[in-house]
Nucleic acid binder design. Sequence first.
DNA 1: AAGCAAATCAGAACTATTCGCATTTGTGGG
DNA 2: CCCACAAATGCGAATAGTTCTGATTTGCTT
Lengths: 136, 136
Amino acid sequence: MTLEDQELKKAGLKVTLPRVKILQILENCSDRHMTAEDIYQALRDSDGDVGIATVYRVLTQFEAAGLVERHNFDNGPAIYEIDRGEHHDHMVCTETGKVIEFHDAEIENLQERIAAEKGYQLVGHSLVLYVKPKSS
Amino acid sequence: MTLEDQELKKAGLKVTLPRVKILQILENCSDRHMTAEDIYQALRDSDGDVGIATVYRVLTQFEAAGLVERHNFDNGPAIYEIDRGEHHDHMVCTETGKVIEFHDAEIENLQERIAAEKGYQLVGHSLVLYVKPKSS
DNA sequence: AAGCAAATCAGAACTATTCGCATTTGTGGG
DNA sequence: CCCACAAATGCGAATAGTTCTGATTTGCTT
């Protein structure tokens, strides 16, 4: 029983081949941020016959189970990353496409305060900074 | 020559019926935030025969001309609003769908600083707070 | 090892948006 | 004021991303 198997069990999900493989791909990918299509290609390149529909279905379940997070940058496809329990926001380089994670406690606090000022309770947020290399 | 006509001329766009009507709809809509489909329906209800493709085309041109702003909330359709030149971010009520605008100079500054710290220059950002009524 | 619910596959369907092309519509020049 | 011509439009088809459907397979329970 591998580590991935245990994670799936813990999440109350049956341990199937597609699920294990997708979890491994997400854990081993270099920059931690992949689209469903990226994962589908990675599966295809390695061996198996996993349909794109399964990739989406599994990712949605993983999200519901708290194993991965889904983000929507601008208008492209959604990107997925392993949820390590450390909340962070993203910065995307408009020239290289590079994704950088960051966390700022002050911004988080201000968000709470702004919601409260308008009579609401914050339940979530999405913050993406679009940036370019300093000198260009 | 109406006000809308002048705005279009100033933006270097030919004054056509679809463009004038779409601009009016956006200016008169109650909460200032509409999807392309909303606008298409509003046109349909009033009278004319404007295709959905034209609605999208015109909105894209308006955006390029700085007349409207497009925003992508989560994974639904894009929403459009008249650009009054006052930058603001959005808060969306997860229960009522209500959209509330806000602006916070401090958050804006922090964003600049964070980008700079990582060696980048901020070129844009997207911040959406998902909220619910305080007592529920 | 058998049974059964859960998961998967392939392909169709769906939503949001854009494209191609034949037709129509504004606009500047005469 | 009218004409010509580029620009804009309408419609339907195309695309991208994602979800659904229904028949088949797979993994957990005993």
